[in-house]
């Protein structure tokens, strides 16, 4: 028996919206500790990793670990039927479920929707992601980072991110010219302006902006984002989801020939 009830169902809707351009189908692994999901884009350049802890759910029960293979497109269609204020419950009684039940309830419990989504059997392509002690960590406004990526992608499809003790520089070079945005440490009390740099070792890495722009669809999940980098490592972009868990994106760097 598996049942997970999320009080703020809108969080689940936002998560699916954030990843639907990146991955087509995912395995959600349910265990006693919560839900986890890891999937790569078709080019195996980017990876999304979701972890939702059981204690973040209103109700959570998972008698034995199960894997739920979902088509993101079909999941999106069902979630469109959930109101932003609804609770969302996932449920199945079977051990090897062929479908997953969804219940959407409004606040007054005066409207209850029930859907059943057919499950897919997907081979698990999971990668071993080592716990990395990143040498450069940037915490900043997710809206601000999203804006920087959007603005720079009009000049080039590739951005170089260079950190130093007191600032991070985003540089682009394209046919029309070049540009850079430098953001300094800023302990402002205004969320949108605050920038927190923890630079043990400076890094200079290059990434494809189109992936960063896809990651930034998660901006509605958290007002802050953290960029985690070490030389010769994929970038890890993390959106923490209050009291529930985190949505992480990994992106392999580009190397200049």
């Amino acid at each position: 028996m598996f049942e997970a009830k999320l009080q703020q169902g809108v969080i689940f809707k936002k998560i699916v919206d954030a990843i639907k351009d990146l991955v087509k189908s995912v395995n959600i692994d349910a265990s006693t500790s919560g839900l986890s999901m890891q999937a790569m884009d078709s080019a195996h350049v980017a990876l999304v990793s979701l972890k939702l802890n059981e204690n973040g759910f209103k109700d959570y029960r998972c008698d034995r670990p199960i894997t739920l293979g979902l088509s993101i497109e079909n999941l999106s269609k069902i979630l469109k039927c959930a109101g932003n204020d609804d609770t969302i419950t996932l449920q199945t009684d079977e051990e090897e479920p062929s479908s997953l039940k969804f219940f959407f309830e409004n606040q007054q419990a005066s409207k209850i929707s029930e859907f059943s989504l057919n499950l897919m059997s997907l081979d698990s392509e999971s990668l071993g992601i080592p716990d990395t002690d990143y040498s450069s960590v940037i915490q900043m406004s997710s809206a601000e980072f999203s804006r920087i990526c959007k603005e720079l992608s009009s000049i080039s499809e590739t951005v170089e991110i260079e950190t130093s003790k007191e600032s991070v520089k985003f540089s682009v070079q394209g046919d029309i010219g070049a540009g850079s945005i430098t953001v300094k440490n800023n302990q402002s009390d205004k969320d949108v302006d605050r920038v927190d740099l923890q630079i043990d070792q400076p890094v200079k890495l290059t990434f494809a902006l189109r992936y960063l722009n896809m990651f930034n669809k998660a901006v509605s999940l958290s007002s802050t984002v953290s960029l985690n980098m070490s030389e010769e490592n994929p970038l890890m972009v993390e959106y923490k989801i209050d009291d529930l868990g985190s949505l992480r994106f990994y992106l392999a760097p580009k190397i200049s020939d």
Binding site: H44, V45, A46, E125, I129, N233, A252, P253, K254, D257
Partner: peptide, 14 residues
């Protein structure tokens, strides 16, 4: 021009 690396250059398949 820059070459895009793959995640399998960094993470091993489980």
């Amino acid at each position: 021009l820059a070459t895009q690396l793959l995640l399998s250059n960094f993470f091993n398949e489980m």
